[in-house]
Design a protein around this nucleic acid. Structure first.
Lengths: 107, 107
DNA sequence: TTTGGTGCTACATAATGTGTAGCATTTTTG
DNA sequence: CAAAAATGCTACACATTATGTAGCACCAAA
């Protein structure tokens, strides 16, 4: 456990810092998905990894497995991705600022 | 590049998914810090890693190095951690829900 | 009954992170 | 002024984590 802490924020940061966790949550934000479709949405990452993360996210109560709909976000998972929405907007501004600063430096 | 995409949100997710990136941003949210203090705040992670991440966050324009104050968040970095604040609140609720569901299962 | 999709595992290889030692430089202190 | 302490940082051997491919057991449709 990297942060050796039981503070919720640290546990959450640990979880989110694992490769593909944020991506998987993000890809499930719109609609549920089958295993293989989720794999495809994440750019064809290995089934090993999908399976591992899906288990972790399930344990973390952010993801659920429904026989009909496949893998989908839990209520908590939904809440999380909603909080993440402003960060989506931020990412576009961030990209603009970054690019224009990079361009300036190249002059 | 895991997500092989130039969409800003994917680039941001890639960055945030790297170990210690979220933690470093979080630890700098209150006040700037020296190299070694930042290292300590992050639970004494290796200087190798701090240095690597600090460079990446600097390139990403989220972190700045000031001769007087040491390492600190840039304006963009500040904006980011503010957007992250609701996620701090979420983490506490998440932890509660998770714990009570875990307790139920153990019955 | 075979074709194609599903969820998933095994395992060798590659990439990433860790931990310790320590160096060169600047700042503090006696 | 000299010794001690703190600074930012690098090197490198080792451990952990992720990747990619192959493929299996299962089910449904053709």
């Amino acid at each position: 456990m990297p942060n050796s802490s039981n503070r919720p924020i640290m546990q959450l940061i640990d979880l989110l810092s694992k490769k593909w966790v944020l991506r998987i949550l993000w890809e499930l934000r719109q609609s549920p998905s089958t295993f293989r479709e989720l794999q495809a949405r994440c750019g064809d990452i290995s089934p090993t990894m999908i399976n591992k993360r899906v288990k972790e996210l399930h344990q973390a109560r952010l993801l659920e497995k429904s026989p009909e709909r496949g893998y989908c976000l839990s209520e908590l998972g939904d809440e999380f991705v909603e909080l993440f929405a402003p960060i989506y907007l931020f990412s576009e501004r961030w990209s603009d600022v970054k690019n224009s600063l990079d361009a300036k430096e190249d002059q």
